[in-house]
Design a protein around this nucleic acid. Structure first.
Length: 291
DNA sequence: ATAGAGACCTGTGTGC
DNA sequence: TGCACACAGGTCTCTA
């Protein structure tokens, strides 16, 4: 399910229920997701108050009152929902009912609400990071730039692209370059920037290490597509994104993703959207206007 | 450094 | 209806 916009949408949906609440009983309905839950995971959460729910890249971060951080990654198919304690019987009235077999973690809150983590494929994971250790934790130490204006600048991206022969598609999927992009938004950003996914990353950097016009265009396209997607509540494909069960809307704004054989939507372009496989993942692009 | 394959896991859609 | 296969929003590990 989740790239940065979907994770941010989940964060916004969960924050009102979670921030300021104390965690009661935690139910781990299996010993692992992608990885085993670490020793002391449950005990480290029960009785703690969540000061704030944050996000870095595709990670949700529960900042606890003892300084520890609950780190959560949704993998491909993870989702959260809030079961309202006062209307528990109605809590599962979703447009498409979640399969309760895949409800793997349940956090009871002091408010009476419960937060339920569902993940059919179990590529997600959770862990608990000691106070002060987040920035040097292996998951976070090498994370790249958040795709936001002022952070993801032409200069910053040029420094990371310089000398690299790998494709733009692969470079943008690399979380140590830009943190939070995934398969959908890379295709969409490259289309917006009119750049071929096969072009080498290093080709957008000038000899003196400064960003080319194309690279500046790319940074703007990335920031724009992410901002637009966040504003739309992310994209809902096969799964529901939002904690209240409602749908993201950005899938209706896809220009190339999952649109193979359709006409390129760029005004004046007569091209047709093509699909190719790079690093084992589908890339969608217009070979006519993405030179 | 980089590409590619395979791994993890379940569900869905397609074609026969 | 059943079956086989391809594919899916992520990421890690191994090979060459």
């Amino acid at each position: 399910m989740p790239e940065l916009p979907e994770v941010e949408t989940v964060r916004r949906g969960l924050a009102p229920a979670v921030e300021g609440s104390t965690i009661g009983r935690v139910e781990l309905r299996r010993p692992d997701l992608r990885f085993p839950f670490p020793q002391g995971f449950r005990e480290g959460l029960e009785g703690r108050t969540v000061r704030a729910l944050g996000r870095r890249a595709k990670y949700l971060l529960g900042h606890l009152d003892d300084g520890a951080t609950l780190v959560m990654h949704l993998g491909m198919s993870g989702s959260f929902r809030v079961a309202d304690g006062t209307t528990a019987a109605d809590a599962f009235h979703f447009p498409r009912r979640k399969d309760e077999r895949h409800d793997h973690v349940l956090f009871r809150l002091s408010s009476g609400d419960a937060i339920i983590y569902n993940d059919p494929r179990r590529f997600g994971f959770m862990t608990l990071v000691e106070p002060g250790a987040l920035d040097r934790h292996p998951l976070f130490a090498r994370l790249g730039l958040e795709p936001m204006p002022g952070v993801l600048t032409g200069e910053a991206l040029a420094a990371r692209f310089a000398g690299r022969t790998t494709s733009l598609k692969a470079a943008l999927l690399d979380q140590s370059v830009v943190a939070g992009l995934g398969n959908i938004y890379v295709s969409e950003a490259l289309w917006r920037a009119r750049l071929s996914p096969r072009r080498s990353a290093g080709s957008l950097v000038r000899r003196d290490g400064s960003p080319s016009e194309r690279l500046v265009r790319l940074t703007e396209a990335i920031c724009d597509v992410i901002a637009d997607a966040v504003a739309a509540g992310g994209s809902s494909l096969r799964d529901y994104v939002r904690a209240d069960g409602s749908l993201g809307m950005f899938q209706h704004a896809f220009r190339v993703y999952d649109r193979e054989h359709e006409a390129c939507p760029r005004p004046g372009c007569r091209g047709t959207v093509k699909r190719l496989v790079q690093t084992g993942r589908s890339t969608f692009f217009c070979p006519v206007c993405q030179g």
